[in-house]
């Protein structure tokens, strides 16, 4: 999964630490989500989207071939 968190964070002048605090997770979790190594729960995805004033599908998205079952 790919995300636009880093880009939107920069736009809102938020650090990973600040976003983590606002969404109630550790900084490392935001780091892993940004780098695509961790898929957040729907609840956390919505929380992040709310904090970044965006919609979930504007922040998180899959490439077409990622959605195909191998």
């Amino acid at each position: 999964m790919r995300t636009r968190i880093k880009e939107l964070r920069a736009k809102h002048k938020l650090t990973q630490e600040q976003l983590a605090e606002r969404t109630g997770v550790r900084r490392e979790t935001i780091l892993f989500i940004e780098s695509g190594k961790y898929n957040p729960s729907l609840k956390l995805a919505f929380q992040i989207a709310k904090e970044l004033n965006s919609k979930v599908d504007e922040i998180f998205f899959f490439d077409d071939n990622e959605l195909i079952n191998k």
Partner: peptide, 8 residues
């Protein structure tokens, strides 16, 4: 320490 971290 955020104890409610879903990943942890």
């Amino acid at each position: 320490l955020v104890k409610k971290d879903e990943r942890i």
